[in-house]
């Protein structure tokens, strides 16, 4: 278990190993090879950030560049999944979901139910999300709650390399459509990852840090910001339990509620817009099922209800940081009726 690799390498390795393991796994996406039809090298990019680099040389035509037509290729991935393959489609930025939403929302998500249980659609859509790299309003959003809202979809938001590999392999083997949200600022983070193939079940939260005073629930990059805040707070005697749900659909209600029952105080940290979000959803869950345990109002640390701004000075104000989380925790910890 000593081997340390990056989140990006973990994703590449999951794809590589599962393609080696299962010939029905194919990859498609914009520039995931790079160089198709051109006069220079193939595998020139391996995706805009090089996540799929090296897979085309190894697996050839099972790794396919697509035209920049998200409806067609996401729909093709869905159709191929309903026809016996296990496609993994890369949607470069999750913001581009707007272009192909129908194929996910009305087709993939609903086949099984509409068709009376007779369809299986084991498609995976990997997509990059999150703010922090000055990519502005159309390349920085965190729209996982939109997909969590849709029955029939599963939604995965890994926060570290170990989870990224195990959840992606599970997603590929899973017989339902799965959307994997990869935070663009996490690709270079490192962690211990087994060399072998392994899966992580969906709907099992990770208690990243144990603590008895305040429960922090956070996803993706926000897990790291929350841990940072928790360390500072621990120095002042406030022990935070940090819970990473890892998947938003299914959601591990039980772990969240169990923690809230022991702390009575909750801060939810969410990088997505504040309305109709995972933060509000989890708040509602806690308010309904753990009301009796609450000793303070639930706090949510989210961006403001604005698009993601471009200028660094604005974006830094927009994204929740450790200081904001710390403030919220202190407020919750110090609250008394």
């Amino acid at each position: 278990m000593a081997r340390t690799i990056t989140y990006q390498q973990a994703i590449n390795e999951a794809l590589d190993q599962e393609m080696g393991n299962d010939p029905s796994v194919i990859l498609m996406g914009e520039d995931i090879v790079g160089g198709s039809g051109a006069d220079g090298e193939m595998d020139a990019w391996g995706g805009p950030l090089g996540i799929t680099k090296g897979l085309y040389p190894k697996y050839g035509d099972r790794v396919m560049d697509t035209p920049i037509t998200e409806s067609a290729f996401i729909g093709a991935a869905v159709g191929a999944a309903a026809s016996g393959l296990r496609p993994v489609a890369e949607l470069m930025f999750s913001d581009f979901m707007g272009v192909c939403f129908d194929q996910i929302y009305n087709q993939a998500a609903k086949f099984r139910y509409m068709f009376g249980g007779k369809a299986e659609t084991p498609v995976v859509i990997r997509t990059m999300y999150g703010a922090g790299i000055r990519a502005a309003a159309q390349h920085s959003q965190s729209p996982y709650s939109i997909f969590t809202h849709v029955p029939g979809l599963k939604v995965v938001v890994p926060s570290n390399p170990y989870d990224a590999k195990g959840l992606l392999i599970q997603a590929i083997r899973d017989n339902d459509p799965v959307i994997c949200f990869e935070h663009k600022s996490l690709y270079q983070t490192e962690g211990e990852v087994p060399e072998e193939l392994y899966t992580l079940p969906f709907g099992e939260a990770n208690v990243v840090r144990e603590g008895g005073d305040v429960t922090i629930i956070a996803l993706g990059l926000m897990v790291h910001r929350s841990l940072e805040a928790a360390e500072t707070l621990a120095a002042d005697g406030i022990e935070c339990e940090v819970i990473d749900p890892r998947t938003t659909s299914p959601l591990d209600d039980e772990t969240i509620l169990e923690s809230v029952e022991s702390t009575g105080r909750v801060v939810i940290v969410d990088e997505a817009s504040p309305r109709c979000s995972m933060a509000t959803d989890i708040s509602a869950l806690i308010a309904r099922d753990a009301f009796g345990s609450l000793e303070a109002p639930i706090q949510m640390v989210t961006p403001p209800h604005t698009p993601v701004p471009f200028a660094g000075s604005l974006e830094d104000l927009y994204v929740p940081d450790a200081t904001k989380i710390e403030t919220a925790v202190r407020q919750v910890a110090g609250y008394s009726r």
């Binding site: 278990m1 393991n21 195990g166 087994p194 072998e196 392994y198 899966t199 992580l200 079940p201």
Partner: peptide, 8 residues
């Protein structure tokens, strides 16, 4: 669990 989840 990490051990048990490894293929094989």
């Amino acid at each position: 669990l990490k051990f048990k989840r490894i293929d094989g």
